[in-house]
């Protein structure tokens, strides 16, 4: 049995003006420890799917199983980092990263020091008492990641975590996140619209097509790319051929639409 099972998800948003089908016939299995990327043009339902997996939205049809249990009623098993950091501006970094533990009543000396350790590991030493606005974009993103990881979720989902950062910061963070997740053996889903990022970070890349959002194709990343850091993967000779392959598929989606 697979770790995460996404079974025939359909989702339609209803508003006064219209009914938008955001997702249709989504089925996917994710194994424990796997790193998956969702790639696709904006509007093809990636964020919607993450929200459904996180249990924030109830899909109009279909089920999500995590370790064979429906995700409704599971608490803190799934960590979800939104498209922006959404650190609470009135809370210090420490209060921000401990909020998950506090809400689920797991906050004690041990979990607190674990969270602060993680903050150090992420290169954010000595900023516990600062407010989010005193930090740079990259630092805030790292703090938000610590907040998500602090409750030790089994599955981590990241929605375009690096899209607002400059290129250099982004490359560094890719390596840092990849390292951290490897060391915890976490299962992760990354949403991105950057082909290179998807290839460099993941074991499998799921390509979505729009209107309605569907899984178009799934690409297995070559073995030699999986075992090296994202930065090195970007420079590996196997990188450009797989890049070309995915790029062509994406391109055919765009031209098919027109």
């Amino acid at each position: 049995m697979s770790f995460l099972a996404i079974k025939d998800i359909h989702h339609t948003y209803f508003t006064k003006a219209s009914a938008t089908t955001a997702l249709s016939e989504i089925s996917l299995h994710v194994e424990e420890g796997e790193f998956i990327s969702f790639l696709g043009p904006s509007g093809c339902g990636k964020t919607t799917l993450l929200s459904i997996i996180a249990g924030l939205i109830k899909p109009t049809q279909g089920t999500i199983l995590l370790e064979n249990k429906p995700i409704t009623g599971l608490k803190n098993q799934i960590g979800y980092m939104l498209q922006q950091d959404y650190l609470f501006p009135w809370k210090t970094i420490e209060e921000n990263i401990l909020i998950g533990l506090k809400l689920s009543k797991q906050l004690n000396e041990q979990t607190k020091s674990a969270a602060l350790d993680l903050l150090n590991q992420m290169g954010l030493k000595g900023i516990e008492k600062q407010l989010p606005k005193q930090l740079s974009g990259g630092m805030r993103q790292r703090a938000a990641l610590v907040r998500t990881l602090a409750t030790e979720p089994k599955l981590l989902m990241l929605d375009e975590p690096f899209s607002a950062l400059d290129y250099q910061t982004k490359l560094k963070l890719e390596d840092l996140v990849s390292n951290t997740l490897d060391s915890f053996g976490k299962t992760a889903i990354l949403v991105t619209h950057d082909i290179g990022e998807a290839i460099a970070m993941s074991d499998r890349v799921v390509l979505f097509s729009p209107s309605p959002g569907k899984i178009h194709k799934v690409f297995e990343m070559p073995e030699e790319l999986r075992n090296i850091s994202p930065f090195n993967a970007r420079n590996h000779e196997a990188f450009s051929s797989i890049f070309q392959k995915i790029w062509k598929e994406l391109d055919s989606l765009e031209t098919g639409k027109n």
């Binding site: 929200s51 996180a54 924030l56 608490k75 803190n76 799934i78 960590g79 979800y80 939104l82 922006q84 959404y86 609470f88 909020i99 998950g100 809400l103 689920s104 998500t148 409750t151």
Partner: peptide
């Protein structure tokens, strides 16, 4: 911003929280 609530809900927050 409803996304702040979304963050809290991912940690299983109640409406009061």
């Amino acid at each position: 911003d409803p996304n702040y609530l979304k963050v809290l809900q991912t940690f299983g927050a109640t409406r009061l929280q």
